[in-house]
Amino acid sequence: MRALEIENLDKSYGSVQALRGTSLDVRAGEIFGFVGSNGAGKTTTMRIVLGVLEADGGEVRWDGRPVDHAVRRRIGYMPEERGLYPRMKVGDQLVYLARLHGMGASAARAATDRWTEILGVHERRSDEVQKLSLGNQQRVQLAAALVHDPEILVLDEPFSGLDPVAVDVMSGVLRERAAAGVPVVFSSHQLDLVERLCDRVGIIKAGRVVAAGGIDELRTTEHTRWVVDGPPDPQRWLSGVPDARMVTEEGTRTVVELAAGAPEGAEQAVLRAALTSGPVREFSRLRPSLTELYRHVVSTDDEPASTGEQTSAPARTGASA
């Protein structure tokens, strides 16, 4: 299967090391969410993929071959800092960009019409970009990334500054492109959105991918947690259950954690213990949200260099999953 592989990228700006062996891969037809705090290296990675920056080391491959100028022409790119000619008309601008990517004049015009229609800015085609609202400029920017029918999509924070309707439109477009076999990688700070939209996620911290994989995979922890909405005084009814301990209690809702290595089905004992004390209205697995996961990963202090092996391990599992 074709994949965009980013392997071992290094990049430093003077004394600041922006990327330290950044690796991840995005397969055709998949939406990959790239998250990390400001300055973690997301934009640098994307700019290297597009050839706008040169890496000090490492390689970017598409379909097994290093990405060169010809491949880059087939990438749809949305830079972090939006860029369009402010005094050029929306339609002219999109046609120009499509043609720069190699489309013929009439195909470029047709694609411009189509994408402005889909993104809801078709009525503004003959307006200068600077006259549009920021949200509409953002839509035009996405149209600029899509207009040449790219084989790969690299979008740096495509959702920032969009209203909920536009977010839905853009999500729909990304899903549709992925379904058409395009690898889509985008960065975002809206983690709930990433969780909803992405097949896989990579978390980058200080230039290194510290976690990567399917969302469910990442959310799976050694200690499983369960939420019980049922009888009060959990300390009492939980006392006889092996491997279980109470984490929090909020009104009638109790969070119970099972110790690592608890046997399969150990949660059933928790449910039975609760039922014997009173009615249970809800019993469900509590998975950490991406936000919690992210906070956990990002708040962990920088470990000494010797643990580099460990931190990059999940990235590998993610890649091979």
Partner: peptide
């Protein structure tokens, strides 16, 4: 400077040299 200020240059240089 217009291309640099508006950052469109990044989009252009991802396509042409």
């Amino acid at each position: 400077v217009e291309e640099k200020t508006s950052r469109v240059v990044e989009l252009l240089l991802a396509t042409i040299r």
